[in-house]
Design a protein around this nucleic acid. Structure first.
Lengths: 256, 256
DNA sequence: TTCGCTTAGTGTCAACCAAACACTTTAAAA
DNA sequence: TTTTAAAGTGTTTGGTTGACACTAAGCGAA
């Protein structure tokens, strides 16, 4: 770990890292009581990946670093969505105990800046590092008690994600380069928590110009093989490429 | 001012306070070199109202307090939109000099959490307090160099506001209880930096159910008097009341 | 080889909404 | 009484949404 002088004991960054596979939206969580931890306490172990911010880095760089350490990937889609600063956010007894074993200033008040990250799970091999001893993907429906205020942070991330996929074409960042319309629709339905009509969805997506059909199809599936599509935009122009017309049954609409 | 023990020297809150009058969108800025200041330096004086966060308050409460101190009003619409934490954000020489006169730990790195506030200028009488010696409304087109990274923060606030008024019915928070369609349209046009068609705008607004026409009209204006409208929603349910269909020519659209 | 299972893939119609567009009304001031 | 300034008002065209149900393709089991 770093010298205490290079860490700001008052500001941290936490990342809600979303991944999508097998029609399931997951969050990448770490177990703070993993093999290398001296702190043993069986419940309330899972946490959003995060760390204190270093003196020589800005907030985006801190979030990038955390993702790089954990996944080996850089250039991942990251969006800062909210800072959490309740004075009591780290006041639970078990959290304080844990902090005593890890932090130079365990009693310092910590404001955390929360990011959401969208990653293509087929690209990532989790490599737990530093004091992160175990990391795993957890379906969002199975997320129980997290440490500190991380349940609240995760809830905020999910709301932010839901709002954003309705404005910016960022859903593709959760999918492999080639995907089927079924994948894409299932992703939208999962995040929006609502079903949409298949025909309308496909029409909208194709008509919007966001996706391009490939000649290829699935092979070896036990039903009609689905056509593959690719996202039709520069791979990573800025963070959110452009704002696009993306309407779908029954959600928010906007000045236009 | 407060004792140093009650302030967190590492985290501050800055507010971009928007007001609208005479068809002009303004920001409420303070002059940090006002009458009571010992630091005299003529340029680069204006700043977003802000302060360090106190140990016993959360971020929203800190922002509320700043607004209360400055305007005497509480319950103002506040929305946290971004944290700014560049290590060099307070590194300009003049800013450092000023900090030396004001802060217990002038060299501490400070992360700031930025809020935007929307206020009805007819309700507010500015009362500069504490080390805020001069406060004034500045049209956003006339904003020059601000202190620290406040130009960047303000830019972010404007973008956030532009996005939000297209999703949530919050524009009304910038207007008096009674307003004309001309006021409302002009407000939208100013924030969106784009003109919209008068007939389409009125139809959309009335049809959306967001506004209700009053029997009253303007009196004593030297042209056809305009009808007054009121916002048709509980005065302050939550912060953003509900998400509503608010389309207007040529801007972002969204899944729906 | 046939049948069943599963998911992919497709088209139409009606209702609504968006966008473009210009003239009349009202009041005060000159 | 004329001028000036802003308010207020409808229609048409075209595009989008949303609702709706059947066929196609491939695999595996009988």
């Amino acid at each position: 770990m770093s010298l205490s002088t290079s860490l700001n004991p008052h500001v941290s960054v936490d990342c809600s890292i979303f991944g999508f596979s097998d029609n399931s939206l997951c969050l990448l969580l770490i177990n703070r009581n993993g093999a290398k931890s001296t702190f043993k306490n069986d419940d309330n172990r899972f946490a959003l990946p995060g760390d204190l911010v270093r003196d020589n880095e800005n907030l985006d760089e801190a979030a990038d670093r955390i993702l790089k350490e954990l996944t080996g990937l850089s250039g991942i889609f990251l969006h800062q969505f909210k800072a959490f600063g309740d004075p009591l956010r780290i006041a639970k007894a078990k959290d304080r105990d844990w902090l005593k074993g890890v932090r130079q200033e365990p009693d310092a008040r910590v404001i955390t800046v929360a990011y959401l990250a969208l990653i293509d799970r087929t690209k990532v091999e989790i490599k737990p590092g530093s004091f992160t001893n175990e990391a795993k993907w957890v379906p969002i429906s199975e997320i129980k008690d997290l440490v500190f205020d991380h349940n609240e942070i995760f809830g905020g991330a999910l709301l932010a994600l839901r709002e954003m996929i309705q404005i910016y074409p960022i859903a593709f960042k959760l999918l492999p380069v080639k995907f089927t319309m079924g994948d894409l629709q299932s992703l939208y339905e999962t995040i929006l928590e609502r079903e949409v009509d298949k025909r309308n969805f496909r029409r909208k997506m194709v008509h919007s110009g966001l996706v391009r059909a490939l000649p290829e199809k699935q092979y070896g599936v036990s039903n009609k093989p689905a056509r593959f599509y690719v996202f039709n935009g520069s791979t990573s122009e800025g963070l959110y490429s452009s704002i696009v017309n993306l309407k779908m049954e029954g959600s928010i609409t906007v000045f236009n």
